[in-house]
């Protein structure tokens, strides 16, 4: 192999390149997109969206097609209506959020854990990268991924409803005003839990286990305490329950599973706790151990 005399370009001027957080986040996104796992979940979410749109069209037909008036009453009993229907756009009765949890666990579980396993962080921190840049990159990816996935679920049913039925369509004209903040909070909760769990894990597989363990484990504990103490507010310790509660609250469902106060406190506690854990675990002193 030939050895060449070193001839390198001039040193770059600082602050001329992209922000390090964007560089790291983009690298993670490209890595996920190049994996089969990304294609599998892409397929699953597209199928879910198609089911959602089909249900929307069925609703539209039930309201407009006289031939279906015979089954309208029965269908209205089976299908959710009003605020419940709007809230279900983001949750699909728990199916969509469960799929999303599984996806963030599988993809996001390795987000920080992979760097720990392969000792990539010391190398990154030896560049002009601050721990806050690293955390922002991982947080951006962890919360950005579920948010981007939820965006079509917010806008497509709304847009199609407007297109086929105008203002009298099954989806309210103002629905994005409720659904978009709900999607953002869902993404933040999932992102924070994923980030914290992944930073606790020593490998991507362990990260997957940590994310599922935290979401399912806290749901089990919350359910147990709610049942024993006959106080549903205990479900607020479960990020899964919080993710389900926000669309209900923002769409003003008549009888939400969780009220505002426990939901706000639970969400705030999870965001602070897991961000704090991730910040502690991604310090340079942790990276070198």
């Amino acid at each position: 192999m030939p050895i060449y005399a070193p001839s390198l370009p001039p040193r770059p001027v600082l602050d001329q390149g992209l922000p390090p957080a964007l560089v790291i986040a983009r690298f993670d996104i490209r890595r996920v997109l190049s994996q089969r796992m990304g294609r599998f979940f892409g397929f699953m979410f597209v199928v879910s969206l198609l089911i959602q749109l089909t249900m929307l069209y069925v609703k539209y037909l039930l309201n407009t097609n006289a031939a279906l008036s015979g089954i309208k009453d029965f269908a209205n009993q089976v299908l959710t209506q009003g605020p419940e229907f709007h809230a279900s756009i983001l949750t699909m009765s728990g199916w969509l959020t469960s799929l999303l949890w599984f996806q963030v666990a599988l993809v996001g579980g390795g987000l920080v854990a992979r760097d720990s396993l392969y000792r990539i962080r010391p190398l990154m921190y030896a560049h002009p990268v601050r721990p806050i840049d690293y955390l922002a990159a991982k947080g951006l990816f962890a919360a950005g991924l579920p948010f981007v996935i939820l965006l079509p679920f917010v806008f497509l049913p709304w847009g199609i409803s407007l297109l086929i039925a105008g203002l009298s369509g099954p989806v309210s004209l103002w629905a994005p005003l409720y659904l978009l903040p709900a999607a953002l909070i869902i993404a933040l909760i999932m992102g924070a839990v994923t980030l914290g769990a992944s930073s606790l894990a020593a490998s991507p597989r362990a990260g997957f286990g940590w994310v599922l363990g935290i979401s399912l484990g806290s749901s089990a504990i919350g359910g147990l305490l709610s049942g024993l103490l006959h106080q549903p507010i205990w479900m607020a310790i479960s990020p899964q329950a919080l993710v389900g509660a926000w669309p209900d609250l923002l769409c003003r469902v008549a009888d939400p599973k969780l009220n505002w106060l426990p939901t706000v406190i639970g969400t705030f506690a999870h965001l602070v706790l897991w961000t704090f854990v991730a910040a502690r675990r991604t310090r340079p002193s942790e990276a070198v151990l």
Binding site: P9, D15, Q16, G17, L18, F27, H127, P128
Partner: peptide
């Protein structure tokens, strides 16, 4: 990625 973390981009990075 490592080049971008050092502040390089575009043709400078490629070179």
């Amino acid at each position: 990625m490592m080049g971008e973390l050092s502040g390089l981009r575009g043709s400078g990075l490629q070179g």
